[in-house]
Simulated scan of single mutants.
Amino acid sequence: MNKFINFLENHLGEIECGWSKNEDDEELPFQVVKYGNGPFEGTVTYSTLGLSNFPFVSYMSEKEIHQELIFVADSSIGDINIPSLLQQVGLMIFQKNRALLRGDVIGPYGSLFNNSKLEALYSTMPVYFPDDFHSYSVNEDITIVMTWLIPITSKEALFVEENGWSSFEDKLEDLDPDLIDFNRESII
């Protein structure tokens, strides 16, 4: 695990703090940690840590997948809702024993942040980071996949459902919205 933590800190900065219990003070099977850096100046990154200790099943291929969840935010907003969001999604994966795949949408469940139109989370590759951050090889049998959760609007979630993740990611690439801006407008 130390080599994996070094990998994370080499890409994301030193771990500043972490959460191992939920809001009810119950111990979780994994942690959520906050790093000193994000992919751009003025951003920070959060991740699960220890979720990858458990193999989860792909509903597409039945393959076992080890993964950690990544979340990027503007450093000025503080920790609002982010640790608990990662805890909830991590627990959902853990309880269902189902890996999050590229293009999966969680929600919509209502506004994720105060005064925000973002109501769902979209699962994809961490494209704001270098390619060598997308996965970590533990050994020849186990690779940990880094899964980026992006807050999206309910219209965007519906678009993914109706048109598929590839069409949505094409739109993201064409329009290049600021995916770290929690007050952004829908691209749909």
Results as ranks from 00 to 15, higher is better:
Glu169Thr: 01
Tyr59Ala: 10
His66Met: 10
Leu101Ala: 13
Phe168Val: 08
Leu86Arg: 03
Val138Asp: 08
Met60Lys: 15
Gln95Pro: 00
Asp104Trp: 06
Ile150Tyr: 02
Ile15Phe: 06
Arg102Val: 04
Asn139Lys: 02
Ile80His: 09
Lys155His: 07
Leu158Cys: 04
Met1Tyr: 05
Gly103Lys: 06
Phe56Tyr: 15
Asn115Met: 10
Ser20Leu: 11
Asp174Tyr: 03
Leu149Gly: 02
Val33Ala: 11
Glu62Met: 14
Asp104Thr: 08
Ile82Gln: 04
Asn2Leu: 12
Ile5Gln: 14
Asn53Pro: 00
Asp131Asn: 12
Ser75Thr: 07
Phe56His: 15
Gln87Met: 15
Ser52Asn: 13
Phe40Glu: 10
Glu41Phe: 06
Asp170Pro: 00
Tyr128Asn: 09
Asn163Cys: 01
Ala73Ser: 14
Gln87Arg: 02
Val127Arg: 04
Ile82His: 07
Met146Ser: 03
Pro177Ile: 05
Leu175Ile: 14
Cys17Asn: 13
Gly18Lys: 13
Gly50Arg: 03
Val57Ile: 15
Val44Arg: 06
Phe168Lys: 05
Ser75Asn: 12
Glu119His: 07
Gly36Ala: 15
Asn163Ala: 03
Phe182Tyr: 11
Glu64Ile: 09
Val145Arg: 14
Arg102Asp: 14
Phe168Ile: 05
Val57Lys: 15
Ser61Met: 00
Asp141Ala: 08
Val145Ala: 12
Ser135Val: 02
Ser84Tyr: 11
Leu112Lys: 05
Val32Met: 08
Gly107Val: 09
Asn22Ile: 10
Trp165Tyr: 09
Phe71Val: 02
Leu12Val: 05
Glu14His: 09
Cys17Leu: 13
Thr48Trp: 02
Thr43Cys: 05
Ile106Thr: 09
Ile70Lys: 00
Met92Val: 01
